[in-house]
Design a protein around this nucleic acid. Structure first.
Lengths: 331, 331
DNA sequence: GTGAAAGCGCTAACAG
DNA sequence: CTGTTAGCGCTTTCAC
């Protein structure tokens, strides 16, 4: 069996309280005492038990990150991974560890949602529903929403301006003189899909350009589907001279289709992506895209969640992080 | 205060033992009883406490994934992220959750390594040292090494054939008729760096090609440094006609440098990368590269760790996952 | 099928 | 600065 605090106490002659303090708050113990205790601990290979500690303190210093998106996998998702990374950094700085969970870990045999693992709060990313949030909060589990906004009391949501970002992209294309602008729209969650779609339509209309359904394709956001979709668009007689793609992966597919069709970018075809993911600078020429402040999104969500865990009252707010057009070489 | 098992027991008239069973092993309880208990639980918003549960069971069903690499960040690292994803999948399938930790969470005030968080075992990825492993195991914490091999008793290590992979890449270039083959070597951990370097040198020598120090550059594995390094190499009077890059990020930088210099790939310059990361298929033309079976690496490590946690005795073994050359369009 | 009792290993008051 | 006391909320024997 592993040694417990009591074994150490016996061996060094101090009480278990003092041993506890030597590890949890070393400054409350004389240096001499501390050293004796450490020596005894080492001899016994003693290490404080994290679970027992969490039990009595009533907290774990862990937070959970849960993603609800069709476009798995989480960590490989070029949009979510920088957010996750940012959450990770922020948590680590504040002394929290991060749990990455699926919704599987949120179901009890009785169907109720709950946190089956040891965590003090949860970041729900993607299209989580109100029920989950309600269940979790009834159990006093602090919750923050990421990349999703739900209209609920005391609920903090961190999102970005989907509509504005799309508008930025299309405006830019119009400014560059394009009149036939295609749309390659990824099948994201309804809110994201619709916002970007509306941004595209509204800007066209604002400039008196008509919306041509033949220039619009809804696809899964994979390179393969984007290549196929773009190829179709580019083979049209009156093909578009520019493409707005609702994420960078799609844009890259479109670029590939164009390059393979012998078109020069941006001379023959202009392309704008969305997200400013790492990929956008990998491809050559580098992609003009809409930057979403993913680092801010992650940091804000984590900070607010931690504040809540540490006692600040939750408040209702939708925080929209900035979007910005990054003009590179494809327009 | 949150309701406890006792509150539920009181409300429904059963003992806390039965309530416990209704959640932890529903099959041990009559359906009628179960329903009554669930109803009472719902009324009180009761949810079993994961910490108390872990405490008494002596296990958490969590495992930790700890990466030691200069080339942070973890989740964005194109090599580690698919491995992490694979670990995540495997864990999830077997009912484990994943903790992503930094080494910060492995130090006690007395300097000893230990697991400060609630986990049943640990995957150590990257260049962890023997001391950590020794400390952890003394505390009966199961450990598995990933992408690193340490010669220690009962220690399982999951790695890949670094030397063989590099050799594959360079052989391919030689076969294609190249005689002046440059090396763009990323500053990875010593083992990785040296193995790939030796693979390069040995294959050249085997074919009677002399090793020209001017054709070799050691760089940080970023696109920027790779562009700079490749540009230097390509501006030489007797420039190389092919480049072996020790990861795909470097290869992409090299491709950019070549494209910007007006060279055609592969006609004027052939390039081989390493890792077969997502990026390798993003760039156009698509990259010839050495595939490392990252999915297998993650799955094997997770499976063995879980087996160990569940009682199988640890065994000493180095498992080398397959490497394979993926010929695409840059050679 | 259900219940009573006995802790798991630790920390948080409160004294001294 | 150090020790005493009293649990944290749950599962697990072992009876019934």
């Amino acid at each position: 069996m592993a040694a417990t605090i009591l074994d150490v106490a016996k061996l060094c002659g101090y009480s278990k309280t003092t041993v506890s303090r030597a590890f949890a708050s070393p400054e409350l113990v004389t240096e001499k005492t501390r050293e004796k205790i450490y020596r005894a601990a080492k001899a016994l290979n003693y290490t404080p038990d994290a679970i027992a500690r969490a039990m009595v303190r009533g907290r774990t210093d862990n937070i959970g990150f849960i993603i609800y998106e069709k476009q798995y996998p989480v960590v490989l998702n070029p949009f979510y991974s920088p957010i996750f990374e940012s959450v990770l950094q922020t948590c680590s700085q504040k002394g929290y560890s991060l749990f990455i969970s699926s919704d599987r870990e949120l179901r009890l045999p009785n169907g109720q949602a709950c946190v089956k693992k040891q965590m003090d709060g949860v970041i729900l990313a993607g299209h989580s529903d109100e029920q989950i949030v309600t269940d979790l909060r009834r159990q006093n589990m602090p919750v923050v929403l990421l990349n999703n906004a739900l209209d609920m009391e005391d609920l903090l949501c961190v999102t970005t301006d989907q509509y504005g970002g799309a508008a930025l992209a299309v405006e830019h294309l119009v400014e560059r003189g394009h009149r036939r602008i295609g749309l390659l729209a990824g099948n994201f969650s309804p809110h994201v899909y619709l916002s970007r779609y509306s941004g595209y339509c509204d800007v066209l209309q604002k400039h008196g350009l008509k919306i041509d359904g033949r220039l619009i394709r809804s696809i899964e956001p994979t390179v393969e589907q984007a290549i196929a979709g773009a190829a179709e668009l580019l083979s049209m007689e009156d093909r578009p001279t520019a493409l707005f793609c609702t994420n960078d992966t799609i844009a890259i597919g479109a670029m590939k289709a164009a390059i393979r069709a012998g078109l020069r970018i941006p001379a023959d075809l202009a392309i704008v992506g969305y997200d400013d993911s790492e990929n956008s600078r990998m491809i050559e020429p580098e992609l003009t895209t809409v930057r979403v402040d993913k680092t801010a999104m992650g940091a804000i969500a984590a900070e607010h969640l931690i504040a809540q865990i540490e006692g600040e009252p939750p408040r209702k707010e939708v925080i929209q992080t900035a979007v910005e057009l990054v003009v590179r070489e494809t327009t």
